[in-house]
């Protein structure tokens, strides 16, 4: 008999203690703050950079820059949290409740309200104008530099011609520099 009823104490304890299981759904399940349920987005904070879409191992995310939308196929998502970790502006978070059940598979699309869209459009216009100005400034700077180089080259060619008249050396180098200066100006 020594080898029998080894589990008796524990089994008796179980009879008089509360169940180890949860009577779901009558008793709701308690989640931990860390529980990975589903990804949610603060779309107003999203900068549409597409980092989440590129890094997603299941390809369940899509960023539509033209329409300012972010969409997720929750039935493909494996809650790996890669997007949440890689988001540069931290607009993605992991909610602890699971995806709600549904009768048909669908893609959740998150977009901006008209007011938010107007703000984003204004921001985009301002950004585009700023970029255009910066481009123009860079172009003007490049032209000025090319002009300066051209002037320098002509001066050097003049010096080269003078020295050629004296001894004949340096003629080829002088004309070469001048043609390079012309080419640079054309490119500019």
């Amino acid at each position: 008999m020594s080898g029998l009823f080894k589990l008796g104490k524990m089994t008796l304890q179980s009879l008089f203690s509360k169940p180890a299981t949860v009577a779901y759904p009558a008793e709701p399940r308690e989640y931990y703050p860390m529980t990975r349920g589903q990804v949610s987005i603060d779309i107003a904070a999203c900068i549409q950079c597409g980092t989440c879409e590129r890094g997603c191992p299941t390809g369940c995310l899509a960023v539509d820059k033209a329409n300012y939308t972010w969409s997720i196929n929750r039935y493909q998502c494996v809650q790996c949290q890669h997007c949440v970790r890689s988001c540069p502006v931290h607009c993605l978070t992991m909610r602890h409740n699971y995806t709600e059940s549904a009768t048909e598979k669908h893609v959740d699309v998150y977009g901006l309200t008209p007011a938010q869209r107007a703000v984003k459009d204004a921001e985009a216009r301002a950004r585009a104008e700023k970029q255009a100005k910066a481009r123009e400034a860079a172009l003007a700077k490049k032209r000025a530099k090319a002009q300066a180089e051209k002037g320098g080259a002509e001066k050097a060619a003049g010096t080269g011609a003078a020295s050629a008249a004296k001894g004949g050396a340096g003629t080829t180098a002088g004309s070469g520099d001048a043609s390079g200066g012309d080419e640079g100006a054309r490119n500019a």
């Binding site: 931990y32 860390m34 529980t35 990975r36 949290q81």
Partner: peptide, 8 residues
């Protein structure tokens, strides 16, 4: 413990 510390 796993769920509390890592989420899964």
């Amino acid at each position: 413990i796993f769920e509390r510390t890592t989420g899964g």
